[in-house]
Amino acid sequence: MREENNAGAKPAVILLSGGLDSITVLALAQQQGFVCHALSFDYGQRHNAELEAARNIASHYQVAAHKVINLGLSSIGGSALTDAKIDVPTSPQTGIPVTYVPARNTIFLAFALGWAEVLQAHDVFIGVNAVDYSGYPDCRPEFIKAFQDMANLGTKAGVEGHKIQIHTPLISFSKAQIIQQGMALGVDYAATVSCYSADAEGRACGVCDACRLRAAGFAAAGVADPTRYRPH
């Protein structure tokens, strides 16, 4: 990984989960000339396969730095992704599903905001999507706008006139459009893990909400699905 920013290039913090959306955002930010600092979270999720994918992606893209922050959201639970007593659904749900992690994007963006201030970066990228998604309230444009308003009210950078911009380049894209965008950027989606219940080798279950949305996206984009599925 690069240790120093490129002269004259702008630093940015990229939230990197290791999934399909976040790798696309990283590729987009690099194409736009940002020096990317990737931020991932070990928040007590069911598996580490996505984090391992994030590490490999960060290395492949030679980001300036990659931090993995331990949060331990499993200590409060409340989500099928952080509480072993709640099963991950294997069929479509109505309303906000049990895979919603309470306040997750608020927490993630708060850490990204703090690191951006330290880096004197004015740009934070997150791969939220409000089209083909699971209905999480913290993926909506209204939430992002509210967070950005708060960020510029509650930071030294914002108060001193160095406004921080939260970039959501995929927010109005379908999964198929995201995949097509990524393919145009040369993204290797085989390197990503999206499954809520991936095994230790990163193989997907094929039946959770994330797997269904991902598979439908590849089908609609007319792109062969590179996901590794575990045998059933």
Rank of each mutant, 00 (worst) to 15 (best):
Gln31Asp: 11
Gln31Val: 00
Gly33Leu: 06
Gly33Gln: 03
Phe34Ser: 02
Phe34Val: 01
Cys36Asn: 11
Ala38Gln: 09
Ser40Leu: 12
Ser40Phe: 12
Asp42His: 14
Tyr43Leu: 00
Tyr43Ala: 06
Tyr43Val: 00
Gln45Met: 12
Gln45Arg: 11
His47Val: 09
Glu50Tyr: 13
Leu51Arg: 11
Glu52Leu: 15
Ala53Ile: 04
Arg55Cys: 05
Ala58Glu: 06
Ala58Cys: 07
Ser59Trp: 07
Val68Ser: 07
Ile69Glu: 12
Leu71Gly: 03
Ser74Glu: 14
Ser74Thr: 02
Ile76Gly: 00
Ile76Pro: 00
Gly77Arg: 01
Gly78Pro: 04
Leu81Val: 04
Leu81Tyr: 06
Lys85Asn: 15
Asp87Leu: 14
Val88Cys: 06
Pro89Asn: 08
Pro89Thr: 06
Ser91Trp: 10
Pro92Lys: 07
Gly95Met: 13
Gly95Lys: 13
Gly95Phe: 13
Ile96Val: 15
Val98Ile: 13
Val98Pro: 14
Thr99Lys: 02
Pro102Tyr: 03
Pro102Ile: 01
Asn105Pro: 09
Thr106Ala: 14
Phe108Asn: 03
Phe111Pro: 01
Leu113Lys: 08
Gly114Ile: 00
Glu117Ile: 03
Glu117Arg: 08
Val118Asp: 09
Leu119Phe: 09
Gln120Gly: 04
Gln120Pro: 05
